[in-house]
């Protein structure tokens, strides 16, 4: 098996004439935190949807931990070890916070009809869900209907559900946007702790400070294409990147 958790090789996704993702290739080492950045409309979320199976690639190959996965549906990708959060939070509104996490704990029960008939609301599953809620710091809200949470806590719930899948690869889609400063530092610590457990993290982030601070390496997309790849330091001083963000002539102003 290769040392890479995720490999994208010439991946394209077209919507009619729009090349949302065009010939993107990068590799992610096991246990790495990789930031995916780029201006609005660069194709970051499309990239996530390709990796998590929401879309299948028009062309190219996606390999997860040595297994070629392009075209598998999201529920199979979850079983293969991909956990994700959504840019626009998607809680199961009428279910409690605890039950939301329990849905994810059922991952290995959903594979067959027979297996899915056993009882879900056991002490074991609620204890396990509670542990994960404690980890993300919203255990006190366990019995609140998830639709009533403020945004910051809904983002933590998204993270809790993704962690409950015990993923090999965690995809975080703008988990930090719209959060207060304290919430950001708390979640950053959490992401680092997750990586310590050996989970690889791929994150989309608009907040440059967070993306640069958290990521081991960055991949920069612009208009669907790869623009740059490298350590935060390299990317920050790359004139192409500065141009994409600030426009031509911006390089001078930025320094």
């Amino acid at each position: 098996m290769s040392g890479y958790i995720l490999e994208l090789d010439g991946v394209c996704r077209y919507f009619g004439g729009l090349k949302a993702v065009d010939d993107v290739s990068f590799r992610m080492k096991k246990g790495e935190i990789l930031g995916l950045i780029g201006p609005n409309g660069a194709g970051k979320t499309t990239c996530f949807n390709l990796i998590s199976g929401v879309y299948s690639p028009t062309r190219g190959r996606i390999t997860l931990d040595g297994v070629s996965t392009g075209g598998l549906p999201p529920y199979k990708m979850a079983a293969l070890g991909v956990g994700r959060t959504f840019q626009v939070v998607k809680p199961f509104t009428s279910l409690s916070v605890l039950n939301n996490v329990q849905v994810a704990l059922g991952l290995d029960r959903y594979g067959g009809v027979g297996r899915s008939l056993s009882t879900w609301n056991t002490k074991a599953s609620s204890d396990e869900a509670m542990e994960i809620l404690e980890e993300v710091g919203i255990a006190s809200l366990a019995h609140t209907p998830s639709g009533q949470l403020p945004l910051g806590n809904q983002r933590r719930l998204e993270l809790a559900r993704a962690l409950a899948l015990k993923p090999k690869l965690l995809l975080l889609d703008e988990t930090f946007s719209g959060l207060r400063h304290e919430e950001i530092s708390l979640l950053s610590r959490l992401v680092r702790a997750v990586r310590e457990k050996g989970i690889s993290v791929l994150l989309i982030e608009h907040n440059m400070k967070v993306a640069m601070g958290l990521s081991d390496r960055l991949v920069v997309l612009n208009r669907g294409r790869m623009l740059a790849e490298g350590s935060p330091g390299e990317v920050r001083s790359d004139p192409k990147v500065i141009e994409a963000y600030l426009g031509k002539g911006g390089a001078g102003d930025a320094s």
Binding site: S52, V54, P73, P74, Y75, M77, A78, A79, G83, R84, F86, K90, P91, F92, V103, A104, G106, L107, D108, Y110, G111, R161, L165
Partner: peptide, 8 residues
């Protein structure tokens, strides 16, 4: 969408 990303 969320359910399906959780293996359902």
């Amino acid at each position: 969408t969320a359910a399906s990303s959780m293996g359902v």
